[in-house]
Design a protein around this nucleic acid. Structure first.
Lengths: 156, 156
DNA sequence: TTGATTGCAAAATATTTGCACGTCA
DNA sequence: TGACGTGCAAATATTTTGCAATCAA
């Protein structure tokens, strides 16, 4: 199966999810979705999505972007992240994907991803010890990416 | 040693840290610090701190609160947290304390804490595998606290 | 047809900044 | 004394909301 048809499948899949929840399938929502599918693994802010959508749909309003992102995040189609730069950042979260987390570079601000499996045992333990029912977790590592480590070595 | 003198020690300690970094020890800064020492383990927002400080120092401005919190967080005296409610929340971080993380209740918004030690091996692995130099990490579990679990059982 | 959705503008919220004045060291 | 710190008000930045018009189902 080609990459293209995988994308198409994901698109159809999300459209169905919207319909199942009685949300209407407006061209604005479709355009926003396509942006995420094209971007692959970006961490986009509302403003960035707005700029990317505008060429395809010039009349769209920023409020629609926010409202759509809210819905898609509620449905679990997008993951809403906070990387500490004062705005929320969204990424497409494929259903079959492992839960992944982020490595955030304190120097250049780049965000990369890593998978976790090891966290699950910790999660179980926490739940028992604190009588807390865990439904989600967020793990972020702050530090320096390899590129910045090189540059710091060179400059200082 | 009494609780009172422990507090006093911590206060003197922070004052020294400020002096060492050539920051002036203004009454505003001292008042803000005392609030944190009195609060113990609260997760306070700038606005909340403002309200708590005002009775002790009525003329203080909100901007001073923000500026002071910035400095104290930079020095590692306070920990700046984001619990997803749209404002930053600060807590006093005692130097000898284990790194701790948060359990955030999705129903009532309460935040409790837990210690981690197990995360360190994961951190080492991540660093090796991704050539990323980790200097800090944040781990948050979202779910339902025991009180809300009870109430959900009863109501639904 | 009709309730959901949209664009726009205004509002709300949190935080930052410019500046004249005050004060800690 | 003099650089640092402060209060105030205004500016920013992000996100939310009210509303009349529009559109998907």
């Amino acid at each position: 199966m080609s990459e293209r048809s995988q994308e198409t499948d994901a698109f159809a899949d999300v459209c169905n999810q919207l319909r199942n929840h009685a949300y209407k399938l407006t061209p604005q929502r479709q355009t926003i979705l396509k942006i995420f599918l094209e971007q692959g693994s970006g961490h986009l802010s509302a403003e960035e999505i707005y700029q990317l959508v505008k060429p395809h749909y010039p009349d769209i309003g920023l409020a629609t972007i926010y409202r759509t992102l809210d819905i898609l995040a509620d449905l679990g189609i997008l993951q809403k992240n906070d990387f500490g730069d004062g705005r929320s950042r969204y990424e497409f979260s494929r259903r079959d994907e492992h839960h992944h987390h982020h490595l955030i570079c304190l120097r250049c601000g780049s965000v990369s991803e890593f998978d976790d499996d090891l966290l699950e045992s910790l999660e179980t333990m926490i739940a028992k010890r604190n009588k807390f029912k865990v439904v989600d977790h967020v793990l972020k590592f702050y530090g320096y990416c390899s590129k910045c480590q090189e540059e710091l070595k060179r400059d200082v």
